[in-house]
Amino acid sequence: MKKVPVQFTLNGEDKAEFVESGATLLKALREKIGDTSVKAGCQQGTCGSCAVIVDGELRLSCLTLAERCDGAAIETTGGLAHGEVLHPLQRAFNEGFATQCGFCTPGMIMAAKALLDGNPQPSREDVVEAISGNICRCTGYEPIIQAILAAARANSLSAA
């Protein structure tokens, strides 16, 4: 297979890899760069477990070609915490018991981050819309919705 070079930043760090032409961003992140916070739940674009943020927008990494991300800024849940200091969403998911098996959690957190980055004070409907492409089989979604709303409240308090 033809290999193509691709360079991007991942959670602020420069990365450069050769990937197979046609390889997905999901494969590049998990298998080349070793960021396994990005989960492969369906590889069909139907579960949201692989969601990442590319240049500020939520993307399903299983449907995104790695070579199209040349020069992009990519964010994943694996790079969200600063040392031991968790992002407000991570704190809210943890303290709000919004994870059970944990497999959907990184994708959920990315979907939520993409929402809060553009809409720091979302309504419940906004939250529901934002995570409607992410499947969770354990929680029944309500704790996740509550955690995202709690993170938004925590953000507004710290900004005030």
């Binding site: 069909q44 139907t46 579960c47 979604y141 309500e142 996740i144």
Partner: peptide, 17 residues
């Protein structure tokens, strides 16, 4: 065969529980 065809209630379909 996937989550588009296998149906489950999403976060917008929740009953008050």
């Amino acid at each position: 065969r996937d989550f588009n065809e296998y149906l489950m209630p999403g976060p917008g379909d929740l009953a008050q529980t």
